[in-house]
């Protein structure tokens, strides 16, 4: 049994200690906004925030979460920065297939909370999630828009 803080609520889950947070979110709690893409922290589709930091939840085992505050895409609009990011994503018409965009939005939210006025280098080093539709330029434009 693990008590997790997810989007401000405590959720009790009965899973093996090595279960990745990603699968706790998706299968145990039915929160499917966080996506499975690779399972080896390559693609970033599973990005969530833990104590404000962008983390690839496929590599976070449930027993390592402890008291960290987990935020997922489902609650992104409850946060002022997250809301700004979403509005920028819509304004810049970023998504195509959209599958990677939950992770991209969470990564951008983490970046802008810690660095409200990111440089191009800041964006490059924080926004490392894969996008097979090639929306990278639109993503960078949306991050700049959200920071403006």
């Amino acid at each position: 049994m693990f008590d997790l803080s997810i989007n401000g609520r405590t959720r009790r889950v009965d899973v093996e200690p090595d279960t990745p947070l990603l699968w706790v979110l998706r299968d145990t709690l039915g929160m499917t906004g966080t996506k499975y893409g690779c399972g080896i922290a390559q693609c970033g589709a599973c990005t969530v925030l833990m104590d404000g930091q962008a983390m690839r939840s496929c590599q976070v085992t449930v027993d390592s979460v402890g008291s960290a505050k987990v935020e997922t895409i489902e609650a992104v609009e409850a946060d002022a920065t997250g809301r700004k990011v979403v509005e920028a994503w819509v304004a810049a018409q970023v998504p195509q297939c959209g599958y990677c965009q939950s992770g991209q939005v969470m990564a951008a939210t983490a970046l802008l909370r810690s660095t409200p006025k990111p440089s191009d280098d800041d964006i490059a080093s924080a926004m490392t999630n894969l996008c097979r539709c090639g929306t990278y330029n639109a993503i960078a434009a949306a991050v700049r828009r959200a920071a403006a």
């Binding site: 499917t32 609009e77 970023v94 599958y99 939950s102």
Partner: peptide, 15 residues
């Protein structure tokens, strides 16, 4: 579809 796809609400087969 961009708002749903920017907020995790879009539902794919896997979901």
């Amino acid at each position: 579809d961009v708002r749903d796809k920017s907020t995790g609400r879009a539902v794919y087969a896997i979901d």
